[in-house]
């Protein structure tokens, strides 16, 4: 069964790179450009992991994760937050909201794959 991963980031290029990398490793990916869009992608279909940026227009990553954790169909879905080294507080907020994993930007595609594989192998 292929694992599906939702990538929520306002940067199209990050989404593209992450998508390409994960697809190369056999994952199926869907993309959303911000929290709002991310919520729209939570249509009940199976999602094994969510990767979400923190700083996004419309709805930021923290709010997105909170909404996600309130959705019975996805409340147990692991979330990887994309933070930066200067965003320790964001990381803490993300963890409080329920995103227990993180990848620090800027990252190499391989780093992302590693983080993903730890959570959904």
């Amino acid at each position: 069964m292929t694992k599906r991963i939702l990538i929520v980031d306002d940067s199209a290029s990050i989404r593209q790179v992450v998508s390409t990398t994960l697809q190369g490793a056999g994952y199926e990916t869907i993309e959303a450009c911000d929290g709002m869009d991310g919520l729209k992608k939570l249509d009940g279909s199976k999602i094994n992991l969510i990767i979400s940026d923190v700083n996004m227009p419309k709805m930021d990553g923290i709010s997105f994760v909170k909404e996600l954790k309130a959705n019975p169909a996805y409340k147990f879905t692991p979330v990887i937050m994309l933070t930066t080294e200067s965003q320790e507080d964001k990381k803490a907020q993300g963890k409080a909201a329920g995103a227990k994993a993180w990848v620090v930007k800027p990252f190499q595609p391989q780093q992302m794959l590693t983080a993903v594989e730890k959570l959904v192998m």
């Binding site: 790179v17 700083n55 227009p57 930007k105 800027p106």
Partner: peptide
């Protein structure tokens, strides 16, 4: 927003090395 722009430019740059 300015911060976010700089941030995204940097973030993606890192991904491409």
């Amino acid at each position: 927003r300015i911060f976010r722009s700089a941030h995204t430019v940097k973030g993606s740059a890192g991904v491409f090395g």
